[in-house]
Amino acid sequence: MDPVLTARNLGASFEGEWVFRSWDVSIARGERIALLGRSGCGKTTFLRIAAGLAVPSEGEIRVRASRVGYVFQEPRLIPWLSVRRNLAFVSDRDPSAILAGLNLSDAADARPHELSGGMKQRVNLARALLTEPDVLLLDEAFSSLDVALKLRLFSDLEGLWRRNPFASVTVTHDPRDALLTSDRILLIGGAPARILRDIPAPLSAERSYGDPGVVALEAAILRELSDVSPARQS
């Protein structure tokens, strides 16, 4: 299938020090991948490069998408605008269906300071989805959420993906999150960080939080992560 994102020999350095090098990544349309590694290994930098917010120090990246959605690690909502107007800021599309899908209809007229952390993060996700992205980039989007809310968001995301299969790149340092949100996982490690392994995740229909297959795979990934030399800590 025609890849929606292709990176060749991609590398990024910061103040003369290589953060990551020699990344070759290819993502097909509708495919979901996760970048899994320790903090500071360049996962967010990769997303920023893919979104056009940063330039690589070496190599090239090609994104064949007309719309890129980005779920920031922190919600980045405009404090003086209501939820509805925060969404209208990025798109003229009617947000009602997405708000309903993410259970935010009742909060449509609330301002960000009136929302809980989980609700803000759902608005962050709704904003990215409202643009009907071909590629959705998720930067530690679930790390500050409790497990129950996280699982609910995974399920919401799965439902939205089934209706409109967008490619996605999820950045996380939690193997379980990676396994539950992606079709394959790129394991990152070393200094400078490199892609160590490309691990296929269980089929989405078969994965659940307590599933023994998921738990066993998580344990294996954790072992592998602890074996590799630590990446540059940020």
Binding site: A51, L53, F72, R76, I78, F89, V90, R127, T131
Partner: peptide, 17 residues
């Protein structure tokens, strides 16, 4: 940066941001 990413420019950017 968020506005840049979503390509929000012109009146909307000035008024809302």
């Amino acid at each position: 940066e968020m506005a840049d990413l979503y390509g929000v420019r012109g009146v909307r950017r000035w008024r809302d941001l």
